[in-house]
């Protein structure tokens, strides 16, 4: 394994979404890293820096990223004036671009919706189109900025399963920005916690494949992470909300 992303002493000041204060981070080939943190902790800033979207930002440090990077945003960002398939293949080169686009849509279970307008799709379907648009480019690195943040809970669960499947078949390194602890545990190999623009903790997930062991490890990690954010998972706010969500 070799690092596809390597960040050394990355600093960003005065950006809209927060600051970065000397970040060192490596991401291995095919590794799934979740970036967890409160709003303003700098997680989106880091992602935008790697995606080369922070033209105006001031800062130092260096990073290396692979050539083929795809970004999934919180909103699907489909061009409303293009049918679904045209959105997927936008900017894609090669004579078989449309065929590849079709296959990508089939992979996200949207075969048959190629000619639909984006506004005819549900939020989850739109986000699946965005996933297809990212993966059809066979990225070495997939940057995802709270991609499921705007979806309802049940759609999220389906999207998690889909993303896990797609990850197996495409094998990109993934950097997922999220503020959802469970999502991070569910999906990532490693969880990096950002606070005030610094890496606060770097936790290997090591989740057993299934069974009681998995549930135990999940609960243990969740408690640990929530504690880091000052929430106790067995009592208080977290618990009350859990009951409401299930009830």
């Amino acid at each position: 394994m070799s690092a596809v992303v390597s960040i050394r002493g990355l600093t960003r000041r005065f950006t809209l979404k927060g600051i970065l204060n000397g970040i060192d981070l490596d991401i291995q080939e095919g590794e799934f890293v979740a970036l967890l943190g409160r709003s303003g902790s700098g997680k989106s800033t880091l992602l935008r820096a790697l995606a080369d979207l922070d033209h105006e930002a001031e800062g130092e440090g260096e990073y290396s990223v692979p050539d083929r990077i795809s970004v999934v945003f919180q909103d699907a960002r489909l061009l409303p004036w293009k049918p679904v398939l045209d959105n997927v293949v936008l900017g894609l080169r090669g004579p078989d671009a449309r065929e590849r686009g079709r296959r990508a849509l089939a992979e996200v279970e949207l075969a048959g919706r190629e000619e639909a307008w984006p506004h005819e799709l549900s939020g989850g379907e739109q986000q699946r189109v965005a996933l297809a648009r990212s993966l059809v480019r066979e990225p070495q690195l997939l940057l995802a900025d709270e991609p499921f943040g705007a979806l309802d809970a049940l759609t999220r669960i389906r999207m998690h399963a889909l993303l896990r499947r797609l990850r197996v078949s495409h094998d990109p390194a993934v950097l997922l920005v999220t503020h959802d602890v469970a999502e991070a545990i569910e999906l990532a190999d490693r969880i990096v916690i950002l606070e005030d623009g610094r890496i606060h903790r770097d936790i290997t997930v090591n989740l057993p494949a299934e069974g009681e062991a998995r549930r135990e490890r999940f609960a243990e990690l969740e408690e640990e992470l929530l504690a880091l954010f000052g929430v106790r998972s067995d009592t208080g706010v977290g618990h009350g909300e859990r009951e409401r969500a299930q009830g």
Partner: peptide
């Protein structure tokens, strides 16, 4: 952290 966390945490069991 929020209500969604709770549901997601129990995703497997909630579905089965």
């Amino acid at each position: 952290m929020n209500s969604l966390t709770a549901i997601d945490a129990n995703a497997g069991s909630a579905l089965t």
